[in-house]
Simulated assay, not measured.
Amino acid sequence: MLDKALQGIKVLDLSRILAGPWCTQNLADLGAEVTKIEHPQRGDDTRGWGPPYLEAPGTAERMSAYFICCNRGKRSVAVDYSTPEGAATIRSLALEADVLVENYKVGTLKRYGLDYHSLKALNSRLIYVSITGFGQDGPMADKPGYDYVFQGMGGLMSYTGLPDGQAGAGPLRTGVAVVDLTTGMYATSAVLAALFQRASSGVGAHLDIALLDVAVTLNANQGSNYLISGANPQRSGNAHPNCAPYEVFRCADGYLILAIGNDAQFARFCDVAGRTDLAQDPRYATNSARIENLVALRSVLTDLLPTRTRDAWTGAFDAAGVPWGPIHTMEEVFAHPQVRHRQLRQAALHPVMGEVPMVRNPMLAPSAAGLAPPPLLGEHTPKRQGFSRSP
């Protein structure tokens, strides 16, 4: 089972917000022992990123939903690394650590002897992960940055949103911090590769993971489209730049996503719609032709889809093998029978907070052992009652 794949691996987590904690939560979910280092008074910034908060009845303890989403399975040790005693504590923990993850500005930890080269001298097997906005070198290496900045700077927002000429046109960010989350996933992959490499080399590594690098890479086909064509991608709302029809359409009583990925699927859609002429029309017979004539095709489908209810369309689509999808609220997501079957909603019991709801890591099977809850600030600092070495 993958939930024990990293058993015996010790991770020292000096990261905050989302990208770093998302990485270290993945490592905890895979069985690593993760010790989260937090400032004794402030803790991770996201502890205050609410509402909403999960509150413990009869106590002053609470956890923000944001903090809960990326900090399960960790121990929290309160240490102020800016003091000599605190820095010494971090160094002593680093001696036994396999992995250290930090996301401070370049040079910050060096002032306290906690940079890669200082800790490598103490522990040559240490895999040291630095997550920053712009990387460890270059003209902007000393600048901070948040996900939102890189959604814009990396190009994502330039083609996300409604096209010019439509009401509400303009650049648009995604609904979650997609650059942070993807950075956390890249960092996770890099850590696993470094552990594999260390098994043969015997030495650790310094992993330089930059949000800007990830944001540029995240453009995927849009970036490739530009490199091949030389044309900047344009905002296209819910439409796909390379497939058609591949967007949201209104039915008689709601919306659905029509996701046609090839010409055979389009022909089946036309059969269901009673418009086989569309599949035979040279303007729409191939995907390339449909992209070139998308405005005309969209006009036809915008008139056609509202002639039936969503259930009428989707039942026929399922029977014919036409790809489609609903647009769910969070309530509908967690009530969906497939989501429930896959046990994506889970919960962990915390001795103070009680039941903490969370989402299963998709890398783990539904039958994996139960997840451990996120920690209270400093919950596992030795001076606190109930200190233990594992969550």
Rank of each mutant, 00 (worst) to 15 (best):
A215K: 06
V214K: 01
Q166V: 00
D208R: 04
V179M: 08
G170Q: 06
L172V: 14
L212C: 01
G168F: 01
G204A: 12
A187G: 07
G184T: 04
R173K: 15
L181Q: 05
Q166K: 01
V216P: 01
V216Y: 02
G161S: 02
A215L: 07
A210F: 11
G152H: 07
G170A: 09
Q197A: 15
V176G: 00
P171R: 10
A169K: 08
V179D: 05
G168V: 05
A205S: 15
T174F: 15
D208M: 05
A167D: 14
R173C: 07
V214Q: 00
A177Q: 13
L218P: 00
A169S: 15
T183D: 01
L162I: 00
S189D: 01
V149E: 06
G154E: 08
A199M: 13
M185H: 10
T217E: 00
A193M: 13
F150A: 03
L156Q: 06
V203P: 00
L218F: 13
G165C: 03
G161E: 03
D208L: 10
Q151H: 08
T217Y: 04
T183H: 02
A199W: 11
G152Y: 10
A187E: 09
D164M: 08
G152R: 08
T217Q: 04
T188A: 09
T217C: 08
A190I: 03
H206T: 00
L192C: 11
P163H: 07
A190L: 03
A169L: 10
N219P: 03
L211W: 11
V178C: 13
V149P: 03
T217G: 13
L181R: 00
S189H: 03
A199T: 11
L207T: 03
D164A: 14
A205V: 02
A215R: 03
R198K: 12
G152V: 13
G204C: 13
T188E: 05
A177M: 11
A194P: 13
N219A: 01
T174H: 14
F196I: 11
A169T: 08
Y159F: 15
V191I: 12
L195Q: 02
G175I: 10
H206I: 03
L212M: 15
L212S: 03
S158G: 06
A199K: 14
L156G: 03
A194V: 09
S201H: 04
T182H: 05
G170T: 08
F150L: 05
V203W: 02
A187K: 03
A187V: 05
T160H: 06
L212R: 01
V176N: 12
V149Q: 10
P163R: 08
D208K: 09
T182M: 14
A169E: 14
F150N: 01
Q166I: 02
V179Y: 11
D180T: 09
G154V: 05
F150T: 04
A167H: 09
L211T: 06
L172K: 12
R198Y: 09
A194Q: 12
M157A: 14
Q197D: 15
M185K: 04
D164K: 06
V149D: 04
G168A: 08
A210T: 08
A169V: 05
S201G: 11
A193E: 07
P163Q: 05
L181C: 03
A177C: 09
S201R: 08
D164E: 15
M157E: 07
A193D: 06
D208P: 06
G161V: 02
G204R: 12
V191Y: 00
P163M: 02
Y186I: 11
P163V: 01
A199C: 11
G155P: 01
G152T: 13
